[in-house]
């Protein structure tokens, strides 16, 4: 990021990039898009992320008994 005001945006592209890199749980994703970084409310974050995940339709796999999402390149 650049400078102290480095914003993170919750976008389809950003989510796709994370999930292409490695499998992540919903909680992992939420950590990447913390409300204090995106400026969104908790509710907005959940809604937007849900829409993006439905659209991307990532693969799912269980790792350590937790559901992880990932995308093949």
């Amino acid at each position: 990021g650049q400078g102290s005001g480095c914003d993170i945006q919750l976008t389809e592209d950003a989510v796709r990039r994370y999930l292409t890199r490695k499998p992540m749980t919903t909680k992992d994703l939420l950590k990447k898009f913390q409300t204090k970084k995106t400026g969104l409310s908790s509710e907005q974050t959940v809604n937007v992320l849900a829409q993006i995940l439905k659209k991307l339709n990532p693969e799912r796999k269980m790792i350590n008994e937790k559901m992880h999402f990932f995308l093949k390149e």
Partner: peptide, 20 residues
């Protein structure tokens, strides 16, 4: 806090459950 993250993760999973 981590409990807020837990709540958000639960809400997100609930949203996705309709879909999965």
């Amino acid at each position: 806090s981590s409990s807020e993250a837990d709540e958000m993760a639960a809400a997100l999973e609930a949203e996705l459950n309709d879909f999965i």
